[in-house]
């Protein structure tokens, strides 16, 4: 098991290097490279920031040296300073990270605990009314632009019904609330963003769990379980489910990039004070150090998600654990 985790960790190193290379390439993709950002696209940049940027990228040196310098800075999470307010990029990201993590973890949990039962029940009762209804839901889920759904829900719950707040993480008078009021306030602010950011994943994972379960139900060991004389419930919820979970767990880890990517839209729409909104604002303001920082951190989070998925995978599948 330890060996397996170690192997996974080692495997992440080339991936990490690759991520930094691509990010580096993207910076130099802009016409004229980072040098051009200083003058052409961002006229607001101060002279001081220009000088700092110059030294940050070592723009006078050859490319591979520039990359190496940049990489050593990255390893210390030194992304430089924001063009906008001169604060350290890493600090700006760190203060936004908890909100993003809260949103994503809740979304993942929601996806898992709603999509999984839906998929399993659909598979067990294949072609039933429930299954057909869910298939329609899944198709709609794949096809609805989530940001549009967000608008509609804001319109319905926020504007027409007035039940839920439509932006931010707290109400204005948040500091004066008691603990329980604070909690309730945050929950109310969370409902729409969590639902919207989970929405795509919900459809996808329900479909996937259904497929996975159908596949498992066809397996010989399910027939063996029945042949033993086990009641159908135990056959399904003990023998089949454990096996169907294996690919689903992996997928959950892999759905992290989509969740984080979606965050850039949803956090913006709901004015959620997370990393995604920071990234979006940075993009709109062409605040390159922040864009870079957010990009690298987002990729890191994805890698972390993959690692967690790999470890969970080993937990649910003894064929990985004991090789």
């Amino acid at each position: 098991m330890l060996e397996y985790i170690a192997r996974r960790l080692l495997f992440m190193i080339p991936l990490l290097l690759g991520i930094t290379i691509i990010t580096f390439v993207v910076i130099h993709l802009s016409p004229g490279g980072p040098a051009d950002m200083l003058t052409g696209l961002s006229p607001k940049v101060s002279a001081e920031a220009k000088a700092r940027l110059h030294s940050l990228y070592g723009l006078d040196k050859p490319l591979h040296v520039q990359y190496w310098l940049w990489l050593t800075r990255l390893m210390r999470f030194d992304f430089g300073e924001s063009f906008k307010d001169g604060r350290l990029v890493i600090m700006k990201i760190l203060e936004r990270l908890p909100a993003t993590l809260l949103l994503n973890v809740l979304s993942l949990l929601l996806i898992f605990f709603i999509a999984l039962p839906i998929g399993i029940i659909s598979a067990v009762r294949q072609d039933s009314f429930f299954d057909k209804g869910m298939t329609v839901f899944v198709f709609l889920g794949f096809s609805v632009p989530a940001f549009w759904l967000a608008l509609l829900l804001m319109l319905l719950f926020g504007v027409f019904l007035g039940w839920l707040p439509i932006s931010g993480m707290h109400s204005v008078n948040f500091p004066y609330f008691s603990f329980w009021e604070k909690l309730w306030d945050v929950i109310k602010h969370l409902i729409l963003p969590v639902f919207i950011s989970a929405f795509g994943g919900l459809a996808y994972l329900s479909r996937y769990s259904r497929t996975s379960m159908l596949e498992v139900l066809r397996q010989d060991y399910v027939r063996t379980a029945r042949a033993k004389g086990l009641p159908e419930k135990k056959v399904i919820y003990r023998h089949a489910l454990r096996n169907a979970l294996i690919p689903i767990v992996t997928l959950l880890g892999l759905s992290l990039p989509a969740l984080i990517g979606g965050g850039f839209i949803f956090e913006t729409i709901f004015a959620w004070p997370g990393m995604g909104r920071l990234g979006y604002q940075a993009i709109m303001a062409r605040d390159y150090p922040v864009i870079m920082g957010v990009g690298v951190i987002a990729a890191l989070l994805t890698l972390l998600g993959n690692l967690i998925a790999d470890i969970t995978y080993a937990f649910v599948d003894p064929r990985i654990r004991y090789r």
């Binding site: 063996t224 454990r242 003894p318």
Partner: peptide, 13 residues
């Protein structure tokens, strides 16, 4: 059954 490898549940001892 014919194929013991697929007939035993892989996730249980």
């Amino acid at each position: 059954f014919q194929d013991p490898f697929t007939s035993l549940n892989p996730v249980f001892r």
